[in-house]
Design a protein around this nucleic acid. Structure first.
Lengths: 235, 235
DNA sequence: ACAAAAGTGTTATCACTACACCCATGC
DNA sequence: GCATGGGTGTAGTGATAACACTTTTGT
């Protein structure tokens, strides 16, 4: 195979911003970095891109190593390439964000990496430019969730409307009127009501719903579940 | 400086999707590739990231080489890393999209690169995965323009409302009711009416407007200049 | 006077927000 | 029977889409 002469290869890493929801709080999964430099500082889960994998493949591999899971929602966020972002050696990093249902996967998080969930407002300072990545990821999550039904990726297959509402409130750090919320989400036609109720959170119990995946994929729709100009300052 | 041992550096390139508007048609700037492989095929303007520049810097340098211009609107789109996307040697490419006013800059496009503007619907097949990049860029442009006033980057400082309307029609490949369009754009408060008229396109003449940059930056706003579910199938 | 593009108003419909009470159940 | 969270309805307001004619001016 021919080569491009006299060009300058660079290390390429992938870092994952992993959002999780446990039915109450939106959280971020971070690990204690196991290698120098700045060993034992909090960091996003990441790793170098291997010669035999593409970028999505690298992100999937890294998530698999940490969580033992595949088929997570995964979306490329942005690529970070400041010269001094990694003090050891120049490395550009392709950031991905992932969405997972914490309860489903909590047992499978790999202890080897000393991973820990933090509420978004209580995430410790992270190494390198990872704080910036998290900030960008939150913005992108808000941006996307305002237009497309991606937050369902954070919920179990069966979920209640109160759970969904709290999730929106968490993502946009705001409060939502439950009557209007129910009307809008019902009008979207995205939900299929189940006959069972979830009685874990209240005595009356709340009906379970499932996402109508056909509609989810077919009709791209503006969701607009939040009041205008409320929580939607996307920056 | 220490190094990460036994990792695998990769060539990193930047490719630019350059949109331009001449007051009538939305166009894409492509060049005839000057180097092997597939010399003389149409390609996006691109180049490798140097050791002493960050990603944004590389994109700016490449745009400067082609157009002789700085201070263009430039936004990172996505990073492409399929194993075989460049047949010569593995290269990942960070794609950027740029917006420019064709009339302003037409004289400065560097002939050395055999650059040519094509209407979006008549862009020839491009090398590698550049067709995919263009498709993604159009989607992102639509996505962004639906929420933020970025299309002004494609217009001269003074422009008329009919020009702006045609631009929206071009970007979304749809027709817009001029009465509703004028009402919405006026209500946004983003435009400042000038006293002069542009008489090049009609006998009556159309008033020039300028963008109110303070408002443009200050109030992030949903523009919503198009009827719902019309042209806004963002995929 | 006529052609060509710019600019202007109204109405009916729909969507949104704000708001307060009843329901079902477990204890 | 009461405390807890789940679920329902309405009215007023504002935004939207659909629609056709008049204005200006160069030729």
């Amino acid at each position: 195979m021919a080569k491009y002469a006299s060009q300058n290869p660079i290390l390429v890493a992938v870092d994952c911003i992993i959002f999780g929801y446990d039915g109450e709080k939106l959280k971020l999964l971070v690990i204690k970095r196991a290698i120098e430099p700045i060993k034992d500082h909090w960091s996003l889960m990441g790793g170098f891109v291997h010669a035999d994998e593409n970028l999505d493949g690298a992100a999937k591999r890294i998530l698999l190593e940490l969580t033992g899971l595949h088929d997570l929602y995964l979306e490329q966020l942005k690529t970070y390439g400041e010269l001094s972002r990694d003090p050891i050696e120049r490395t550009i990093s392709v950031a991905y964000f992932a969405l997972i249902d914490i309860n489903k996967y909590s047992t499978q998080i790999n202890d080897r990496f000393h991973a820990e969930w933090f509420e978004l407002k209580a995430v410790p300072t992270l190494i390198f430019d990872h704080d910036l990545m998290v900030k960008d990821a939150i913005n992108k999550l808000r941006y996307r969730a305002a237009l497309e039904p991606i937050l369902f990726e954070l919920l179990p297959k069966k979920f209640t409307i109160p759970q969904l509402q709290v999730l929106y409130e968490e993502v946009y750090d705001t409060l939502v009127d439950n009557r209007n919320f129910i009307r809008k989400i019902s009008a979207s036609g995205l939900l299929i009501k189940q006959s069972q109720k979830d009685k874990s959170a209240s005595k009356k119990g709340a009906f379970y719903f499932k996402l109508d995946k056909a509609k989810h994929k077919a009709q791209f729709q503006f969701l607009n579940l939040l009041p205008k100009n409320k929580g939607t300052e996307l920056q």
